[in-house]
Design a binder for these strands. Structure first.
Length: 315
DNA sequence: AATGATGACAACCGCACCTCT
DNA sequence: CAGAGGTGCGGTTGTCATCAT
């Protein structure tokens, strides 16, 4: 099973982008043979192409084949890719067999340029499809070389995220890292869901709940559905993502006062905190939200200011 | 307007596997 | 069974367009 030498190493064989003439020669040659290629190695000479046979095969299978579907991936296709990737991993060719007209190369590129980044923004490991471990993030913030890719991605994306809930998640992770999570609640004011008073109630209450899951539960009590756990069930991701997109895009009614009421099961100080005016990140974040490009890791001042604000939040 | 940075996509590279002799 | 030819596959790189400075 030795590896055969590739004709691509031949001197004078052209590489790089294909011209229209080359495409036409390749297509006409294959059509002349009824769509059958025979030997790819012999094809270039027969077709009058100064190309490696391998290059011809790639060009045909990934671009010139008549049954290839061009254009953007649909939502359904994206969901299918994610689900299949969770099951199959980087088996691009196998994944491609489930999507009509899509090539493995196209799917692979789409994954690397779109889906992977989207998952990272949501705090999801695109390899394991699980939530990225907090230790990873904490270690990164402690000065370990190489800030966590997830944190970097989340932080760099803060201003551009079109989904408030993603912002919340990203900032939660960031603040847990920076400040032990104590200030994270203030960030929740940047949500556009309800009135300022409602936000005060919700977010001050949240600040009294140190545990991330408890915070999420409190939000859930107020009819928020921010972090349904895709991470524990990859099959539900597509729907979850779709719901998130809908939530972000829709003009969903603000939660009612009743919905925002602190549940009786929460400690008394939580209820008390609900009446305190929110401070800290709210203004900062809403300002950032209006100017998407101001948030980036390169903008040291932003993070410096945010750190300063976080330290002044009431606990 | 020029230049650098970034993102998206096409194409290449090298290894592994399958088939045939 | 071994080895060569041919192809499939996944990772990586190159190229070009667009955006930011």
């Amino acid at each position: 099973m030795g590896r055969s030498p590739c004709c691509c190493h031949d001197a004078g064989v052209k590489k790089g982008p294909w011209t229209e003439e080359e495409d036409r020669a390749l297509v006409e040659h294959i059509q002349r043979h009824g769509g059958h290629v025979g030997s790819w190695r012999n094809l270039p000479k027969a077709a009058g192409l100064n190309r490696c046979g391998k290059s011809c095969r790639l060009r045909w299978t990934n671009y010139l084949r008549p049954d290839i579907k061009r254009g953007n991936f649909t939502d359904d296709e994206e969901r299918l890719i994610i689900a299949l990737h969770a099951e199959l991993g980087n088996k691009w060719s196998t994944i491609a067999t489930h999507l009509d007209g899509r090539t493995d190369n196209e799917i692979k590129n789409y994954w690397n340029t779109h889906i992977r980044k989207k998952l990272l923004r949501m705090g999801v490991d695109p390899v394991t499809h699980q939530r990225l471990p907090p230790d990873d993030i904490l270690a990164s913030a402690a000065g370990a070389p190489g800030l966590s890719e997830a944190l970097l991605s989340a932080a760099a994306s803060l201003g551009g995220l079109n989904n408030v809930l993603m912002q919340v998640q990203a900032l939660q992770l960031l603040l847990q890292t920076i400040n032990g999570g104590a200030a994270a609640a203030g960030l929740m004011a940047n949500n556009n869901f309800g009135s300022a008073a409602d936000n005060n109630a919700m977010f001050n209450a949240r600040s009294m709940v140190p545990n991330f899951q408890d915070q999420m539960n409190l939000l859930a009590h107020a009819n928020y559905r921010p972090v349904d756990d895709y991470l524990n069930n990859i099959a539900s991701f597509s729907e979850h993502d779709a719901v998130q997109q809908l939530n972000a895009a829709s003009s969903a009614p603000a939660p009612t006062a009743a919905a925002l009421a602190v549940p009786a099961s929460f400690p008394q100080e939580v209820a008390a905190a609900a009446d305190r005016p929110v401070q800290g990140f709210a203004d900062l974040l809403s300002e950032a939200n209006e100017m998407p490009n101001m948030c980036s890791l390169e903008d040291d001042r932003f993070w410096k200011d945010m750190l300063a604000e976080s330290s002044s939040l009431p606990l």
